[in-house]
Nucleic acid binder design. Sequence first.
DNA 1: TAATTTTTGTACCAATCGGTATGAAACACC
DNA 2: GGTGTTTCATACCGATTGGTACAAAAATTA
Lengths: 218, 218
Amino acid sequence: MGKVIRVKKKPLPPGRPKAFDPEQALHTALRVFWEKGYEGTSLADLTAAMGINKPSLYATFGDKAALFRKVVDHYMRQQSGLWNDAFHLPTAKGSIARILTSVADALTNGKNPHGCLLVQAALSCGEDADCIKEELAAKRAESGTLMRTRLLRAQAEGEIPRNVDVAALSRFFSTILRGMSVEASGGATRAQLQTVIDLAMKAWPDSARQTTALPAEV
Amino acid sequence: MGKVIRVKKKPLPPGRPKAFDPEQALHTALRVFWEKGYEGTSLADLTAAMGINKPSLYATFGDKAALFRKVVDHYMRQQSGLWNDAFHLPTAKGSIARILTSVADALTNGKNPHGCLLVQAALSCGEDADCIKEELAAKRAESGTLMRTRLLRAQAEGEIPRNVDVAALSRFFSTILRGMSVEASGGATRAQLQTVIDLAMKAWPDSARQTTALPAEV
DNA sequence: TAATTTTTGTACCAATCGGTATGAAACACC
DNA sequence: GGTGTTTCATACCGATTGGTACAAAAATTA
């Protein structure tokens, strides 16, 4: 019983084989951290959900912080397709709009905890988790720079006027993403996020060209 | 030594007098929870910062959750002036703009931890803190309804056109507030938040009337 | 089958968690 | 001064925290 079927081209390494799939265990750990946050998740929570015991967890993933970092990588790998697809759309306006809608989809997806792991997991924490908090802030900043590079390209291509502050614009959309994450975590629906997106897109510079040229009130 | 000076009209109650000021202790507890979050804060953190010991804490404020609720009340009382001032400005546009700038001030105030307590303290948590998480989400929603009532009044007064969805508009500005909180927690400066505010105000309906009437591209 | 290697399950570790029992200390009142 | 009342400081509680030691179990290789 428990005989291991040798998969094609996978010569089993010596020693007792793992009784679990590390990839799937990582996926499960992601869900737990996503739902309970870094400090709110205990090793007991993890081992119970992953179906393994602590020594196996430590041998495979390292300590709690190391496992969490692997989880974050897994999460970003999982979301990277979304960003890549949006990034390569013909117009920057389309790219940003796609990012907002795709993220809204992900934030309210019924299969996952609502909200964004990078926001939920450790916005504030005790001293020992401070480095985790900072790492997450850095990861969040990455999405901002990603949008900024897309906007810069659009500016070079003439889609966005030269006088537009693309750094400010990308920070604005970053703020929208963070805000939607908090709202989704608090129970906002996909439809409600869509109305937020529609209003956010009003900040797009082609309408700004008019409103900044003229005074707001006539 | 340690003789208590009887303050005017304050007949000391019988028994040994408190050796600390509950109001100031609450203020200190606020700072700790604000910085470390609900789960990230231990009773040892609290007693050390407040300069009292656990039995005094329990006798005065109750258990950890009860203390936290008092802290949240203290926090909201502290911020209520900001909202009241903004609420009574003559135009809704001015009210919203004032709220955004005042909150941006508060979020990046050097004297306090950056970010908003209602967002930071418990976006995600373990099971035993779930009720705290939900209470915070409800408190956050209050600010949204507050803005919505202000917008409804403006609509009744004719400042905002009847066809505008004020629920969506208030949700949009709520999202901006949450997003700014996360950004501030991650290190955003006051000036950076201002650029976000300037762009957010582009969603205001008087400019929307133009852009929705005309197609975006000519 | 014997030797080797790796994983597994259990039992355990010190430290910390939130929360409390207890007796001494400090006040008001009489 | 004595009495009643409340707070103080210390020491303690069981439960849980993240993390490990250890030996049995399960695989490969020889």
